[in-house]
Nucleic acid binder design. Structure first.
Length: 900
RNA sequence: GGGCGCGUAGCUCAGCGGGAGAGCACUGCCUUCACACGGCAGGGGUCACUGGUUCAAUCCCAGUCGCGCCCA
């Protein structure tokens, strides 16, 4: 016997273990059921190995799991490929912090090799907590295939890709400005840079013009310290104020350098003074101007953003903010500070290091993203990969068409070390192994006749590997095929690539989608996925982004503890409407927890009434109208849920299931079934038990992808001893359209309407709920009478009437109108006549309103001429109905008034 | 500045050319033999505003106002 409420904590771990240990998550296990040899594959967007489950993951993985479970039940060979990425910066930071806390030697003191050992140790002990958390969510990933971007196989894929792209000239080394994080001392991606609005100042400095005593050019800057690296001043070519100075020079104060005044449209006459100091080595825009005008690139910072030896001695060693202060003071002392304005502007911050990033001129490795992006753009243009919702294609195009060279090197230790070796003269050799690089180098220097280098190499010296590692996203870009075993020609690559759909939040379209598209197309010659489903962000209930600093983070694991994984999953699913963010309120989760309890109790009711599945039960063969009706409703519900899942309208799937379970099955069918289940008609009882069990079983199937735990638990109870296989691998139902019986529908809808009307009238007229009476059919005649008599059990139980016969409405009776029928309930003395009169008047007013509206429509010639026939007919029918109802209500009102 | 999106019941949101919906909250009644995490009934909306297209607009188009987010 089921308990009164569902307790997720006693079910979830146990069920999950059964699934996983039973091998039901494994790809290929479904193959014998699968006649069409169709596969369905999703690669998980690999979470960060240092990460833990947040709401975004919960939504993302719930939706993936719904598709995976649905397709698995449909009998497809399903692969949900899980794993994590090595998160270069984040992981290195975690371990460094740990070392500091333990008072152990820092990274540099312990050396690269020892440090990497520590990182691996950390990974084995504490990495990947998120995979355990995904299990708690119910994610049915094939854990036997779990991968990590630093795995041997995936690392091999990285090496191969790097070397091949290098040899195809799609990877190259270059000295360019990159986003430099001075806290972490590494280049970072422009996607890892967050712009923050900062209230600061605009400083106006006067730069003396060479050879013209007393003439100054005023420049405005937000970063005074960079003036130490100035190598020019730009003015707009059409700016009348400065035209005469173009071609002349300024003498850079404090430094004494002679710097040219150049004309460039980049200088905006409206901004600041209209003249802009140029620091090409420390600003992206200045860099461009510098290239155009051949300005010197003077790097004034160390890797930690302290002033270096390229600046006057006084400032060397100062940190950038100290230097700013000193320079402003010194400029002022020279009388060259014109003014300081308040100024709010955007300052780039590194999202990991948390300090402002520096545009910094260094040697880095770059991928030719522009070339790689071309086919990736075409794939979407030509519809081979499509975005859902479709409008994300715009974002994708926007970014891909303006893509910049991708800086792929990082000055870190944790990651895939770049397979490039430098010879004694700095010549670079890129190969998958040191041996190959060595051979290549030897051949090169022999060929060149460089005896000294050949000698060094032969002694095992002179070849040094590039110390840098690759951007984590370089390896994640290969994820859809590297996880399947590529570069080996594995059966998995052949079978599961390309994957079916990628599920992701829009915030990582650039990180994920774009890069996987580029790499997938280049190396596999085929898109990595046909569909990209972009879901929303999860926000707090007020719509603010969840963040630790705001303190509005809701931990999905807390919600799972409190309400169960299914409640959380269903909440997220029900709110996953396309194109709108999910605003999560716990009251919502609580509401869906109540829904889980409702389902539980429906099953409990079935259990108590011995509703057990009957082998060979044929839903087409039921005889009772209520059973015919619920079978048809089940078919409709399956259609709605299926359509929702298949069209990525998960909220529709959830609400269809919700409505069917609660508002159809529980509210009506189970109530209708009660007299049959407890009555003396043995045949009807047997049929109803079987039907109820069948419908419940269908419900468990339809809901399983969304709420796997409770459905599996109930399925187990329902099946009892005869259970052959668990719900997770049961067959998704396929129904015959013929199961929808129009006559049964019409009858049951009429019964529902009549019961609702009677209940409503009784309630509004303050009839005591317990009062029962005979009903009198005032209008409607024999046809209605026999229909009502056929369902007397239901009417009796749910509308509380004893019987029905044709007659006159007694004085002061309650009267309800349903279609052609007027039913009177003789309750003189019990009912509140004024309330009843008011009720009828209200109903008449409502009908009048409708009649006026429809009348207006039907008297419009344009409508009659141009609207589709069925719409016109529908309105005519409705008008007739409303008029008939209005007349009946008016009669009823007259009778009540007479009784007053 | 460019792009995307949103303004529908007190709150959170579906619906998106032909009868205004859900959940929560609220009110009244009901401890009825599945469920009070429940049942029954009910109140509550010029679908932001202004124009346009259409026989018909919450829905399509344009503009206005307000609010988000992304990119510069």
């Amino acid at each position: 016997m089921l308990e009164k409420t569902y307790t997720p904590e006693t079910v979830e771990d146990r069920r999950y273990r059964e699934w996983e240990e039973g091998g039901f998550f494994k790809c290929g296990q479904n193959a014998e059921r699968n006649s069409s040899d169709e596969t369905f594959t999703i690669v998980i967007p690999p979470p960060n190995v240092t990460g833990s489950l947040h709401m975004g993951h919960a939504l993302n993985n719930t939706l993936q799991d719904i598709m995976i479970r649905y397709q698995r039940m449909r009998g497809l060979d399903v692969l949900w490929q899980p794993g994590t990425d090595h998160a270069g910066i984040a992981t290195q930071m975690v371990v460094e912090r740990q070392l500091a806390q333990n008072g152990e030697p820092n990274r540099r003191d312990m050396g690269r090799e020892a440090f990497l050992e520590r990182v691996w140790k950390w990974k084995e002990e504490s990495g990947g907590t998120i995979t355990g958390q995904l299990r708690r969510l119910g994610a049915s990933c094939d854990w036997s295939r779990e991968r990590f971007t630093m795995d041997e196989g995936l690392s091999r894929a990285v090496l191969k890709v790097f070397v091949q792209l290098y040899k195809e000239n799609l990877i190259y080394r270059d000295k360019r400005l990159v986003n430099w994080d001075p806290a972490l001392e590494t280049a970072i991606s422009d996607l890892e840079v967050q712009q923050q609005e900062i209230q600061s100042n605009l400083w106006y400095f006067r730069y003396p013009v060479e050879g013209e005593d007393g003439t100054y050019l005023t420049v405005a800057t937000t970063r005074p310290e960079t003036m130490l690296g100035d190598s020019g001043v730009a003015v707009h070519p059409d700016d009348e104020r400065y035209k005469h100075l173009i071609g002349k020079h300024c003498i850079l104060p404090l430094v004494g350098r002679r710097i040219p005044i150049v004309a460039d449209a980049y200088a905006d006459p409206e901004q600041g003074s209209g003249a802009v100091k140029m620091t090409p080595a420390h600003d992206f825009n200045d860099f461009e101007v510098g290239v155009r005008h051949n300005l010197e690139m003077i790097n004034i910072f160390t890797t930690t953003a302290h002033i270096n030896e390229n600046a006057p001695e006084k400032y060397r060693g100062m940190d950038r903010f100290e230097a700013r202060k000193a320079i402003v003071e010194d400029i002022e002392a020279l009388g060259l500070l014109e003014k300081i304005d308040d100024h709010t502007h955007m300052v780039p911050y590194g999202d990991r290091g948390g300090v402002p990033i520096e545009p910094y001129l260094t040697d880095q490795w770059f991928a030719d993203a522009k070339t790689l992006a071309k086919p990736a753009i075409e794939s979407v243009e030509q519809g081979r990969t499509k975005f859902v919702p479709e409008n994300w294609t715009k974002t994708y195009y926007e970014w891909m068409r303006n893509i910049q060279p991708w800086c792929i090197s990082r000055q870190l230790w944790w990651g895939h070390q770049i397979p490039a070796w430098y010879g004694p003269d700095g010549e670079v050799f890129v190969e998958e192994t040191e041996e190959l690089a060595y051979a290549e180098a030897l051949a090169h220097y022999k060929d060149k006749g460089d005896v000294q280098s050949v000698e060094m190499l032969e002694e095992g010296r002179g070849l040094e590997r590039d110390p840098d590692v690759l951007d984590t996203w370089f390896s994640s870009a290969l994820w859809p095929f590297s996880t399947l075993g590529w570069p080996d020609e594995t059966p998995e690559v052949a079978r599961y690539y390309p994957t079916s759909v990628l599920v992701t939040g829009f915030d990582i379209i650039f990180f994920w989608v774009a890069r996987m598209m580029m790499m997938g197309l280049h190396f596999m010659k085929e898109e990595p996925f046909h569909t990209v489903y972009v879901h929303a962000l999860v926000r707090d209930e007020k719509g603010a982004k969840m963040s630790k600093s705001k303190g509005n983070v809701i931990d999905p694991l807390d919600l799972i503890d409190q309400y169960g994984a299914d409640s959380l999953r269903f909440t997220l699913t029900a709110q996953a409407a396309q194109g709108r963010d999910v605003k999560l309120a716990t009251s919502r989760v609580e509401g869906y927890r109540n829904f889980m309890t409702k389902l539980w109790n429906a099953a409990r009711f079935c259990e108590m009434n011995e509703c057990l599945p009957v082998d060979g039960f044929d839903p087409a063969a039921v005889g009772q109208t209520v059973n015919k009706w619920i079978v048809g409703e089940t078919v409709k519900a399956e259609r709605a849920v299926r359509a929702g899942i298949e069209s990525y309208r998960f909220n529709d799937a959830a609400s269809s299931a919700y409505q069917f379970v609660w508002n159809v099955f529980c509210d009506w069918y189970l109530e209708f079934a009660k007299p049959l289940l407890t009555g003396d008609d043995a045949a009807a009882q047997v049929e109803t038990r079987a039907t109820a069990a069948w419908v419940l079983e269908q419900i468990l199937k339809l809901m399983h992808p969304m709420t796997p735990f409770i459905t599996e638990e109930l399925y187990d109870h329902l099946k009892g001893e005869n259970r052959s296989k668990p719900l997770i691998v049961s067959d998704w139902p396929v129904y015959d359209d013929g199961l929808i019986d129009a006559a049964a529908d019409a009858d049951m809808n009429w019964v529902i309407k009549l019961i609702s009307e009677i209940r409503s009238a009784r309630s509004e007229a303050n009839v005591p709920p317990a009062a029962k009476m005979d009903a009198i059919l005032v209008e409607g005649g024999d046809a209605v009478l026999s229909r009502a008599k056929a369902y007397m059990d239901l009417l009796g139980r749910m509308a509380r009437i004893d019987g029905i016969s044709i007659g006159e409405a007694p004085k002061g009776a309650l009267q309800v109108v349903v279609d052609e029928a007027v039913v009177a309930l003789p309750l003189a003395g019990v009912i509140d006549l004024d309330a009843e009169k008011a009720r009828l008047e209200k109903a008449i007013a409502k009908a009048d309103g409708e009649i006026t509206k429809i009348d207006k429509k039907l008297s419009n010639q344009g409508f009659l001429a141009k609207a589709p026939d069925e719409v016109v007919q529908e309105n005519r029918d409705r008008l007739a109905e409303e008029k008939a109802a209005r007349d009946k209500l008016a009669n009823a009102l007259e009778r009540i008034s007479a009784a007053l």
